[in-house]
Write a protein that binds this DNA or RNA. Structure first.
Lengths: 224, 224
DNA sequence: TACAACATCACCATTTGTGGTGATATCTAA
DNA sequence: TTAGATATCACCACAAATGGTGATGTTGTA
């Protein structure tokens, strides 16, 4: 046989990106796009029916984001391979989705040809990462920060990665417009402790105040 | 003659989106993509050489954003028509880019076929907007808010639009992590006045504190 | 003209946030 | 076992933000 095409499902809230991917993937005979979804809920409803082999999915989607979809996949045990397509190249995020069973991670600034490569690779059960992501993973692994300091964003990546779980938890609540007191109450710890964490975050992320924290958190999708 | 192709330049920091657009546009014989850029600076360097008729550009780009590029265009007086491709459908943003001479505005969640339509329309010198954008403009014009309350974001659009120039100015400085005092000094007004504006913003945007303000501002790209 | 919207400022009380120092307990990795 | 990282908490002082009320001048428009 071997004439079987690889069945693909696309999920992204930007219709143009889907149209673009469709056009790119149609150029290859070995692929067949069997469906696409504009948000996480729609995706979860349709993915059962059309039996896709590979899902290419954005992290940021309305209704349910990519992380939630991956979690659902784990519970239900779908055999479908997942490639994450994301604007954000945060190491923590990459770690997270890999832990959740994703097979590939593509930065949105990767070339179109990488997509085909990625699909074939993960279809075989191997992992695939676009170049910049591979660099980040290696850097994070060896403890050496990737020295591509072309943008200030990159500069922060190391620091972002050093946020502890507890700090992240508090950062999320700060971003939800909670006061230190409220955060303390919710987590069952003292307001003083919350403020300690806040100060540590401000120092290690080199921002001026909580607003700086929230901006970074949003830029790296550490918060919803 | 009439066999002349429309020369197009693409600008977006997401390579996949560019590849997608390339694939979509290649399907039509009447278009010729003469170049693309991944950021505002690169765009401004290249746009002179390849004499594009139409530029399709994202607002959010590194180095220089779409707004800055439009400003530069106005100073230099390039004859090229500009179509903005944006994730954000904020009325203020649309007004802004139109004021700066953009000929079209497409939401990124529009269909691929709209792109071709948009290019042909603006090439003739007319304006083009994708459906959702057209709705927003009409709504803003008639003073009636578009009643598509499918997401909480949409709910805020009216309020966002009611931000005054002065308030926006102050909001931007708040987002830059300035204190009320600093903002007052910079604008040459009293700290008290700054706090008045801040309080008005918090009230009209229905958020809990300055962090809520900054989150909204970022979501709608009111700040850099 | 008169009203509404805007920008300006003041004063108040109270809560929050920032910055610093220092301390304790736990856990992990060298 | 020892050093480092993490999480916890306290206390202090000061700056900043929030919430309220009230007031003034300008400007544009009905």
């Amino acid at each position: 046989m071997e004439g079987e095409k690889i069945k693909i499902h696309l999920a992204d809230d930007h219709q143009v990106l889907i149209d673009g991917l469709l056009a790119v993937l149609r150029l290859e005979q070995k692929f067949e796009v069997v469906g696409f979804s504009l948000n996480g809920n729609a995706l979860l409803e349709r993915i059962q029916e059309n039996k896709a082999d590979v899902l290419i999915m954005d992290i940021n989607m309305p209704e349910r984001d990519g992380i939630e979809v991956l979690r659902e996949f784990n519970e239900k045990g779908y055999p479908c391979k997942v490639i994450i397509l994301s604007s954000y190249e945060d190491v923590k995020l990459i770690k997270e989705v890999l832990k959740l069973g994703a097979h590939g991670f593509l930065a949105k600034n990767c070339a179109g040809e990488n997509i085909a490569e990625a699909i074939e690779t993960v279809y075989k059960g191997e992992k695939y990462f676009s170049d910049s992501i591979r660099d980040k993973i290696l850097g994070a692994f060896s403890g050496v920060k990737t020295e591509v300091a072309e943008s200030t964003d990159k500069y922060f990546l190391g620091a972002i990665d050093s946020i502890t779980d507890r700090e992240l938890e508090i950062l999320k609540l700060i971003a939800q417009e909670c006061s230190g007191q409220e955060i303390g109450d919710r987590l069952g710890i003292s307001k003083n402790t919350v403020e300690s964490h806040r100060k540590n975050l401000i120092k290690k992320l080199k921002v001026k105040n909580s607003i700086g924290l929230v901006k970074l958190a949003m830029r790296y999708n550490l918060v919803n």
